[in-house]
Computed example of a mutant assay.
Amino acid sequence: MARKKPATTHGIAVVDKPTGVTSHDVVGMLRRRFNERQVGHGGTLDPSATGVLVVAVGKATKLLRFVEKTKKAYLGEIVLGTETNTLDADGEITATHDMTGVTLEDAQLIVAEHFVGAIEQIPPMVSAIKIDGKRLHELAREGIEVDRPPRPVTIYSFQLMPTDEPHVFLAAVECSSGTYIRTLAADLGTLLGGGAHLRNLRRTAVGRFTIGEAQAPDHCELLPVEEAVRTLDRIDITRDLADLVANGRVLPAFEGDGPWALFDPDGLLVAVYEAFGGEAKPAVVVPQN
């Protein structure tokens, strides 16, 4: 079997994902654009959603998990009175409710009581989570619904604002990785005595990657590999220590909880270390050119 060609292009792209394409489609676009097979993304967006999708190329793909775990920010519209089978505007209507008596203040009170801090969510059937080896959205296409265990997530901020349409609220959410905004919308509708669905979802930030720097797949800039760890604590180390780190040396724990991004005197990322007991162990050692 022929060996895979080593990656020669490396970096991070902050993409403004357009509507109507999957996150995997965007990965394919960048594979073709950079002529590189080793490409991946840090956190799926639904086809109808837009906004920040962080894509790694070459050796930066080893660092994607540190992008995926970061806080996310979203804007979306919650439409009261209509439920769909996908919990968003792409699905078929399954129920309607008269919610004309519900006010923005009512919704804000429910959000403050039930949807801020540590909560649990039941993943939607249209998600990519696997149950017994099969993705939920694949089961949903077959008309199969299965029990899904609730998952813990954290909602750091959940603000509701009025729009020009009655009973349509603009939602601004900051949350942990793994949060389903469509589930927030549907659960809010239920607690308000009816139902709701989500539309026009846009991710505005993934950690410190923001919509202000995001660009279309055909025009996005390829940033240095080091940008993948911009949210981590930075540790500058000596040349001698960098040589040891490059060989996976276990070190005493640094200040803070980690992970820590270790940089050599030239400003190049050498490794990411994580806490293990009272020590710091290499999670990823970045190969140098």
Results as ranks from 00 to 15, higher is better:
residue 5 K to M: 10
residue 10 H to C: 04
residue 13 A to V: 12
residue 16 D to G: 06
residue 19 T to S: 15
residue 20 G to E: 03
residue 20 G to N: 04
residue 27 V to G: 01
residue 30 L to R: 06
residue 32 R to E: 09
residue 34 F to V: 07
residue 35 N to I: 05
residue 38 Q to P: 00
residue 38 Q to N: 12
residue 43 G to N: 10
residue 44 T to W: 06
residue 45 L to R: 04
residue 45 L to T: 02
residue 46 D to M: 02
residue 47 P to Y: 09
residue 51 G to W: 11
residue 52 V to D: 08
residue 54 V to I: 12
residue 60 A to R: 06
residue 61 T to G: 10
residue 62 K to A: 10
residue 63 L to N: 11
residue 64 L to I: 11
residue 65 R to W: 00
residue 66 F to N: 07
residue 67 V to I: 13
residue 71 K to G: 05
residue 75 L to R: 13
residue 81 G to M: 05
residue 82 T to W: 00
residue 84 T to L: 10
residue 90 D to N: 11
residue 91 G to L: 07
residue 91 G to P: 08
residue 92 E to C: 02
residue 97 H to T: 01
residue 99 M to F: 03
residue 100 T to K: 10
residue 101 G to T: 15
residue 102 V to C: 07
residue 103 T to V: 05
residue 106 D to M: 05
residue 108 Q to D: 03
residue 112 A to Q: 15
residue 114 H to M: 10
residue 116 V to N: 10
residue 119 I to N: 13
residue 120 E to K: 15
residue 127 S to W: 03
residue 130 K to S: 07
residue 131 I to K: 11
residue 132 D to S: 11
residue 135 R to F: 05
residue 135 R to E: 12
residue 141 R to H: 08
residue 142 E to W: 02
residue 143 G to V: 09
residue 153 V to S: 08
residue 153 V to K: 04
residue 156 Y to E: 09
residue 158 F to I: 04
residue 159 Q to A: 14
residue 167 H to F: 11
residue 168 V to A: 08
residue 173 V to Y: 03
residue 174 E to V: 13
residue 177 S to H: 12
residue 177 S to C: 09
residue 186 A to P: 00
residue 190 T to E: 14
residue 201 L to V: 15
residue 209 F to T: 07
residue 211 I to M: 10
residue 216 A to Y: 05
residue 216 A to P: 12
residue 216 A to K: 07
residue 219 H to A: 15
residue 228 A to V: 13
residue 235 I to W: 02
residue 236 D to A: 14
residue 236 D to E: 15
residue 236 D to H: 12
residue 237 I to W: 11
residue 238 T to A: 14
residue 241 L to R: 13
residue 242 A to W: 04
residue 244 L to P: 00
residue 249 R to C: 05
residue 253 A to S: 14
residue 253 A to N: 13
residue 254 F to G: 07
residue 255 E to R: 09
residue 256 G to H: 09
residue 258 G to V: 07
residue 259 P to A: 06
residue 259 P to V: 07
residue 262 L to T: 09
residue 266 D to K: 14
residue 266 D to A: 14
residue 267 G to F: 06
residue 268 L to R: 15
residue 269 L to P: 02
residue 276 F to V: 02
residue 277 G to A: 07
residue 280 A to E: 10
residue 282 P to W: 00
residue 284 V to C: 03
residue 286 V to I: 15
residue 287 P to S: 08
residue 288 Q to G: 01
residue 288 Q to S: 13
